[in-house]
């Protein structure tokens, strides 16, 4: 379970949230929604300990998020960054960077197939494929790590309807995963159990 209580997060020229509280139950899929630039991605970064709110309390599976627990909390999570502009050139490079084990590589290939990007795996350069295809490959790599909490930053922004359906089918096949995402895509909002307005 993820629990955020009275989060106050602001930048020098922007208030992201004031006394913002929400809970996400284990196995629930929740989408943080709101206009562009409001700070949805920042809120995900707060959950990962990349941004520290001015005040408030964050708990993940009963652990208070702090410098002592951060490594344990991060080990429960996977994160798909927005647009996947990662400086990575191929699926093979992802395997090396994430130091995947044999079982994870097998799952990676399985997810590549489920997400419709199997042909772009291996050493094929990401320069030859679209942003959406790269994003699905990165997601397949993350999913193969098999962690209980999935954080997705704008997961469908670069996907067409067919690819979105493949993504739904893939995520739907994963039992008991907690999903926290950001998006303002109608189809994605309908897929999630609940929407949290920022």
């Amino acid at each position: 379970m993820i629990k955020c209580e009275n989060i106050n997060l602001s930048f020098p020229k922007q208030i992201v949230c004031e006394n913002f509280s929400f809970e996400v139950a284990t196995g629930e899929s929740v989408c943080i929604s709101g206009p562009s630039g409001k700070g949805k991605s920042s809120l995900l970064k707060v959950l990962m300990g990349f941004m520290i709110p001015q005040s408030g309390k964050i708990q993940v599976d009963g652990l208070d998020l702090n410098s002592d627990t951060i490594a344990t909390i991060r080990n429960k999570m996977i994160w798909l960054p927005q647009n996947s502009n990662l400086p990575v050139d191929s699926a093979d490079e992802l395997v090396v960077l994430l130091q995947m084990k044999e079982e994870q590589i097998r799952k990676f290939n399985q997810f590549l197939e489920q997400l419709g990007v199997k042909e772009y795996g291996g050493d094929r350069s990401f320069n030859e494929i679209s942003g959406g295809q790269k994003q699905r490959i990165v997601l397949a790599a993350c999913l193969s790590l098999d962690k209980p909490i999935i954080l997705l930053d704008e997961p469908v922004s670069a996907l067409d309807d067919y690819s979105i359906d493949l993504l739904f089918a893939t995520l739907g096949s994963l039992p008991n995963k907690t999903i926290v995402s950001t998006s303002h895509n109608k189809k994605w909002l309908d897929f999630c159990d609940r929407t949290i307005e920022l």
Partner: peptide, 18 residues
Amino acid sequence: KEQELYYFLLINGNSRKN
């Protein structure tokens, strides 16, 4: 410049060393 990759690996990898 590639902070996002570092943070990506920090979450998705299994240690800070990696």
